[in-house]
């Protein structure tokens, strides 16, 4: 499945400034693995040492938070957009 990934500003220092990536994956876990394999420095930011997602990282499939769709096992489909965003205080700028 061809998926577009949007990388937040806070992670772009580890991706050489790259803001979007096209990856092939069937789950969110595979999407994150694809990013990590291309940019190893991103991996330690995305995951805790036990392999769980960083508590301040939100991952969305088409703006739907994957924590409520099965987490890293959530399926992605052709043309989906996966967005990574840092969790910030509510009421922030839209």
């Amino acid at each position: 499945m061809a998926v577009k990934v949007r990388i937040p500003t806070v992670l772009r220092s580890a991706t050489g400034g790259r803001a979007t990536m096209d990856v092939t994956a069937t789950t969110v876990g595979e999407v994150l693995a694809a990013i990590s394999s291309e940019y190893p420095n991103v991996q330690e930011q995305l995951f805790n040492t036990d392999g769980s997602l960083h508590r301040f990282l939100n991952v969305y499939i088409n703006d739907d938070d994957v924590r409520y769709l099965g987490g890293v096992t959530a399926a992605v489909a052709d043309g989906d957009e996966v967005t990574l965003l840092p969790a910030v205080a509510g009421g922030a700028t839209a």
Binding site: L11, Q45, L57, P86, A87, A89
Partner: peptide, 16 residues
């Protein structure tokens, strides 16, 4: 989409 617009985060550990 707050996390897209908030500058000044050095890394994810600055999240909230």
């Amino acid at each position: 989409p707050s996390g897209e617009m908030v500058d000044g985060l050095r890394n994810l550990d600055d999240g909230y």
